[in-house]
Lab assay of single mutants.
Amino acid sequence: LVRYRTISKIPQITLNFVDLKGDPFLASPTSDREIIAPKIKERTHNVTEKVTQVLSLGADVLPEYKLQAPRIHRWTILHYSPFKAVWDWLILLLVIYTAVFTPYSAAFLLKETEEGPPATECGYACQPLAVVDLIVDIMFIVDILINFRTTYVNANEEVVSHPGRIAVHYFKGWFLIDMVAAIPFDLLIFGSGSEELIGLLKTARLLRLVRVARKLDRYSEYGAAVLFLLMCTFALIAHWLACIWYAIGNMEQPHMDSRIGWLHNLGDQIGKPYNSSGLGGPSIKDKYVTALYFTFSSLTSVGFGNVSPNTNSEKIFSICVMLIGSLMYASIFGNVSAIIQRLYSGTARYHTQMLRVREFIRFHQIPNPLRQRLEEYFQHAWSYTNGIDMNAVLKGFPECLQADICLHLNRSLLQHCKPFRGATKGCLRALAMKFKTTHAPPGDTLVHAGDLLTALYFISRGSIEILRGDVVVAILGKNDIFGEPLNLYARPGKSNGDVRALTYCDLHKIHR
């Protein structure tokens, strides 16, 4: 019993810090008490220290592992850092350059016999395009090294910054494609005289377009951006097909006994025919423009016929181009109408809503002055909100995010209106959640004399007048207030005048 009563005193000691020596009952000389009392004092002292730490809000209350900052290894790049964003855009520009100039170089340097010394005699450094290609190869190699040090988000939505895990993730992902696209074939085969082989191998750079397509997928929600990307894709495919079309004609031209190829026909049409040795002929500019003209006309199913396939190889390629053109029509131009419709969806919704308003007016036989006010209010409210119901949009977000959005939407009023000066951010967040926005066209009466005042109004834009009878008592403008002081009276009061809008007004109100 003594032991039980001794232990039962522990909660009292913990909360009230009572010393055991003052209790005459606990001072009985028993061996059990002498053993338990020192333990009680020690526990009391420890609990006292913990309570003191909690009340003082000291940093040592938290466990040590929670006080440590997340460790980022040296030379690790955050995937959302500004440097990584700028670097990704730079790589994107280099990939676009590669997609345009690599097929052009591979096709127009394929057994090209233009006048001038061969590239091997001039030297590697004197070729501007080769120098640019070398810079692109170096940048792609540097990009691989950067990807080995860039964080990523795993399946659990955690940012991984450990170098080993980053390397394994990159090896399992895009490393092989990036490595093949970054191989400097110019340096590996330079001086061997195989410019045709170098041009063909350099087309491996186009593998990076797969990554670019995935990154550009984030802009699919913007109709104008999608339309622009589709047109660029169409032009890029036409450019690639033009390079292939020229390569076919250029390879067949020296081996044909009869002059029936499209390059021969082009030379005869523009007065620059090929001679018996295969030299001469149109310039590279004429060849490229004509090839691009043929691919565009074939892809769009126009086909004027002034550039036509004559050999079997050219006919087979033309059939493939027609098939590609039909697929592009289905996948690209078939979506253009939907994209344009999405661009004008706001206008369509406006006309639909206006039609419903006019049908309501016609069905209920609203008189002319009231009908005009109804239409003007709808037009003004639509121009202010673009038909978007803010309350319906915010309803799907958590309250903390709703408060931040409301604070942002009402920031101008909260910053410049005098009653809100000096208020804490928590108070402003709470008030912003209570605001209701209303609009009024010129001549609209917001409050009639004798109406119950259940709200306090803040003028965000425009001006109003307060009338008693036919006498203008006051004219209020931006950041002015009218209405009933909230919670100042037990019952809502009545208006002693009319409140009429002089201009288009936007008002925020808080109800009782």
Rank of each mutant, 00 (worst) to 15 (best):
Y65Q: 14
Q68N: 14
P70F: 10
R74K: 07
L78I: 06
P82C: 15
W89P: 01
W89D: 01
L94N: 05
F101I: 06
P103H: 01
Y104I: 01
A106W: 05
A107N: 01
E112L: 06
E114F: 11
E115G: 14
A119D: 01
C122D: 01
C126K: 01
Q127K: 01
Q127E: 04
V131I: 14
I135D: 01
N154M: 09
N156W: 05
E157V: 13
E158H: 10
S161Y: 13
I166S: 01
F171V: 13
K172H: 05
I183N: 01
P184V: 01
F185P: 01
L188S: 10
F190Q: 12
L197M: 04
L197A: 04
G199F: 01
L201Q: 01
K202P: 01
R205G: 01
R205M: 01
L206W: 01
V210G: 11
R211I: 01
V212F: 09
A213I: 05
E221M: 04
G223E: 14
G223D: 14
A225L: 03
H239Q: 01
W240T: 01
W245A: 04
W245Y: 01
N250Y: 13
S258I: 07
L263Y: 03
L263F: 01
G271V: 01
Y274C: 01
S276M: 05
L279F: 14
L279T: 09
I284M: 11
T290R: 01
L292A: 01
F294L: 01
F296K: 01
L299F: 01
N306F: 01
P309S: 01
S313R: 04
E314T: 01
F333K: 03
L343V: 07
Y344D: 08
Y344L: 13
G346E: 11
G346H: 04
Y350V: 03
T352A: 09
T352N: 09
R356D: 13
F360K: 01
F363R: 13
I366D: 01
I366M: 04
N368R: 09
P369M: 03
L370D: 01
R371N: 06
E375G: 03
Y377V: 04
F378Y: 11
Q379H: 15
W382R: 03
I388V: 07
V393K: 03
G396Q: 15
G396F: 03
P398G: 03
P398Y: 01
C400Y: 10
C400R: 07
I405V: 08
L414T: 02
H416L: 03
H416C: 12
C417N: 07
G422R: 08
T424L: 02
L431Y: 01
F435W: 05
T438C: 12
T438M: 13
H439L: 06
T445P: 05
A449M: 06
